[in-house]
């Protein structure tokens, strides 16, 4: 379990960061994609037991930004609340939507500090931050080390490698996708990560989307998390194309 005698010495903080990165891999998978117009987040929700509710994976931060989490939910809420406050104060003092890059660098700096000072631990959560600001749609990946990178598409969490493979394979198609087509790509990427016998259902799937109401125009359709019956049509629409052949799974007859 422990790599070496550095583990008990908190000053050698770098290994702590690596363990925090492991916490991200324990979380259920989330996927984010941007097109030229929209930003989309999709997630698999888990429930602790049959009768419990499903863990929330997507959060709206502001009208124009949302985030998806993988890892310690309580750490994510700290970061999410902080981001909400920053966005509100930007609207109050400047009357504008917080630029995504500025927002993300704020949490990145918070996280970096935790890796360099004794008595702190890194955040045990990875985030995908997606939104649309004055310079267009953006997607950022945030890691516990404080590293944030702008991505065209990304997946983090358990078994997310399969989703990333799907995303890499279809990367060229994303820029010109419409809103719903982009969501379907997200769901297909999610589907790749599922273990045998599991599938996307209205209970375990969340979809968040933000983009212009009409092509090339303001105002935005504000970032909204869709759950339950709202995601039914999208799920059905990708179930169809799998059965219709394509590069999805073949069904034995």
């Amino acid at each position: 379990m422990f790599r070496n005698n550095y583990d008990n010495d908190s000053v050698t903080l770098i290994f702590q960061v690596e363990y925090a990165a492991e916490a991200v891999k324990q979380g259920s998978v989330v996927v984010g994609i941007v097109s030229k117009t929209h930003a989309v987040l999709v997630a698999i929700k888990r429930n602790a037991e049959e009768l419990s509710s499903y863990q929330k994976k997507l959060f709206a931060v502001d009208e124009h930004v949302g985030l998806a989490i993988a890892g310690l939910t309580s750490d994510a809420r700290v970061l999410s609340n902080f981001m909400k406050q920053q966005c509100l104060s930007e609207r109050l003092t400047f009357d504008r939507a917080m630029p995504l890059e500025t927002l993300v660098s704020l949490i990145s700096d918070k996280a970096q500090l935790n890796t360099q000072h004794y008595g702190k631990r890194p955040y045990g959560v990875g985030l995908l931050v997606a939104g649309v600001d004055d310079s267009g749609p953006h997607l950022f990946e945030f890691q516990p080390s404080g590293l944030t990178q702008e991505m065209l598409a990304c997946a983090i969490g358990a078994r997310s490698q399969m989703a990333r493979t799907y995303l890499e394979k279809n990367l060229d198609k994303f820029p010109d996708c419409g809103r719903d087509e982009l969501i379907r790509h997200g769901l297909r990427a999610l589907k790749e990560t599922l273990v045998q016998d599991r599938e996307l259902t209205v209970e375990n799937t969340s979809v968040g989307v933000v983009g212009p109401k009409e092509p090339g125009k303001r105002p935005l359709e504000a970032f909204k998390v869709h759950d339950g019956a709202d995601v039914k049509d999208w799920i059905n629409s990708i179930a169809d194309d799998a059965e219709a052949g394509g590069d999805g799974m073949q069904v034995d007859e």
């Binding site: 997607l139 990178q149 702008e150 991505m151 065209l152 598409a153 990304c154 990333r164 995303l167 890499e168 990367l171």
Partner: peptide, 10 residues
């Protein structure tokens, strides 16, 4: 480090 990184950003 990844194909998924946005070119020219970061």
């Amino acid at each position: 480090t990844s194909k998924l990184l946005k070119p020219g950003a970061n």
